[in-house]
């Protein structure tokens, strides 16, 4: 090698020694590179993904966070809301009307990988990630955080607009619909109403009754697909936003068409 012969005594001893001595003085008399951990802590950036916190009053219990969780460590658990919480909750009046208990997320942090999808896909901005990272516990049960333990109350609620991050919304097949209005009872944003449909049903007594169909307000639909899951007749399915606003019957209620 031609370059090899160029290396002299300076390169072998002096130059590396210079760098080493420089670092020696720097680390002996200068600021330490490390942080004395339990005594002092480094400042995480504001975007840091630590333990989750749920802004209780903003949460509408739609279950999108449970759906997008890749590890399935986040589950929706039914909770009892006090009257005060019921009043303060967004769409609170609707929650009281529901036939079952409202749900809030509970997380098993032993499985959580802090990917942040639950925060990103939350349609109301209720799910947040704090900069708290010291979650170690002596047993596994201690890592399972029930819904109430992540509750955060804010004085000034940031009233963000509802956003459909799922990029899909429900579309109705009119024929199989039986007009049970289960979707209306379960919709977390109250974006469905039942109204007169095109079909009539003849009852046993001979009377003819109109079958009511659900109509969707796509401006506040968040694409959680709760209605699709609860539908007993399988008459709903999810379609991309651009398709669903222009398909058949369901457009009549949609202000986005105009």
């Amino acid at each position: 090698m031609s370059e090899k012969s160029e290396l002299g005594i300076m390169d072998i001893f002096v130059n590396p020694m210079k760098v080493t001595m420089k670092q020696f003085f720097k680390s002996t008399f200068g600021k330490p590179t490390t942080v004395m951990y339990p005594l002092e802590r480094r400042d995480p950036p504001p975007t840091y993904r630590g333990m989750n916190a749920v802004i209780w009053d903003l949460c509408i219990g739609c279950g999108i966070c449970a759906e997008v969780c890749p590890n399935r460590c986040l589950k929706m658990k039914p909770v009892e809301l006090s009257d005060d919480e019921q009043d303060r909750a967004w769409y609170g009046s609707h929650l009281a009307k529901r036939k079952h208990k409202p749900e809030r997320p509970a997380i098993n942090f032993g499985h959580c990988m802090f990917c942040g999808f639950c925060e990103d896909y939350c349609p109301t901005g209720a799910m947040t990630m704090t900069d708290f990272y010291e979650l170690a516990d002596t047993n596994r049960e201690g890592l399972i955080y029930p819904a109430r333990s992540m509750k955060v109350d804010l004085e000034d609620l940031p009233q963000l607009p509802l956003t459909n991050y799922m990029m899909e919304s429900p579309v109705l097949d009119v024929d199989p619909c039986i007009g049970c209005s289960k979707c209306v009872d379960n919709c977390p944003t109250n974006c469905i109403i039942m109204d007169v449909g095109p079909q009539d049903k003849t009852l046993k007594s001979g009377k003819v009754r109109n079958v009511e169909n659900p109509y969707f307000d796509y401006t506040i639909c968040i694409g959680c697909s709760t209605c699709v899951k609860v539908c007993p007749a399988d008459c709903l399915h999810m379609e991309p936003i651009s398709n669903s606003s222009s398909s058949g019957l369901t457009t009549e209620e949609s202000p986005t068409e105009a």
């Binding site: 090698m1 290396l7 390169d11 072998i12 130059n15 590396p16 760098v19 080493t20 420089k22």
Partner: peptide, 19 residues
């Protein structure tokens, strides 16, 4: 530049890695 002094121009590093 410090790495150049420490490794690239260091004969010991080159003896281990060259050829």
């Amino acid at each position: 530049d410090e790495y150049a002094d420490l490794f690239e121009n260091s004969k010991i590093f080159r003896m281990r890695t060259e050829d």
